[in-house]
């Protein structure tokens, strides 16, 4: 867009009023904000001795996990939609024919480069089967770059580790009577697709 574009509305800055020209009232206003924060409750914590409290795990975007279905198998169907949505190109999937009769396709390997990830949550949004989720695990460390590429087993183990504290988001939302996009609550009649 060029500066001469007619769609741009140019505004003139308002001339300074008396209070602004006097300087003192604004000075007091700023100083009062500072002093208010000096006495209010502190937000920072002494990490790692004390850990921050995650407000709402449902919308927090921490380390990824790959969910398991009721039979303990990886829920992912290897549709590549997360890899397609990923703006950082950090998801690498190798799909193959699934060994189970009720599933067509599954990920032979599934890895996320956690160093490359920007934790935008687009993969979670894109997933049609609620297989990939972002947990509220927030401290992610490793000793090498290779260690930070999480493979399928590691992502599944994150699920095993966090499933009790953080149940699958689709189930939590269904229990609360809130249907997520494309997924009916568990008690409702199936609407549309069979997958």
């Amino acid at each position: 867009m060029k500066p001469t574009d007619p769609a741009i509305t140019w505004l003139e800055e308002k001339p300074l009023g008396l209070a602004e020209r006097l300087y003192l009232p604004l000075f007091i206003q700023g100083l009062s904000t500072t002093s208010r924060h000096m006495v209010s409750r502190k937000v920072t914590v002494n990490y790692p001795e004390s850990r921050p409290v995650v407000g709402n795990p449902l919308i927090y975007r921490g380390v990824h996990r790959l969910n398991r279905d009721d039979a303990g198998r990886v829920k992912c169907v290897a549709c590549f939609l997360c890899a397609t949505a990923c703006p950082a190109h950090c998801i690498d999937i190798v799909a193959t024919e699934s060994p189970w009769p009720d599933r067509e396709k599954y990920p032979e390997s599934f890895s996320i480069d956690e160093l490359r990830c920007i934790f935008c949550g687009m993969c979670e949004e894109a997933c049609p089967v609620d297989a990939i989720e972002l947990t509220s695990l927030l401290d992610l460390t490793g000793k090498s770059r290779e260690e930070m590429i999480f493979d399928k087993e590691k992502l599944l183990s994150v699920y095993d580790m966090t499933k009790d504290a953080e149940p699958m988001k689709s189930k939590t939302l269904a229990a609360a009577g809130m249907a997520t996009f494309g997924h009916a609550p568990a008690d409702a009649a199936p609407a549309g697709g069979h997958h």
Partner: peptide, 9 residues
């Protein structure tokens, strides 16, 4: 009517 909606796979 009888086409599966399995575009994702």
């Amino acid at each position: 009517i009888d086409h599966p909606i399995d575009c994702s796979i």
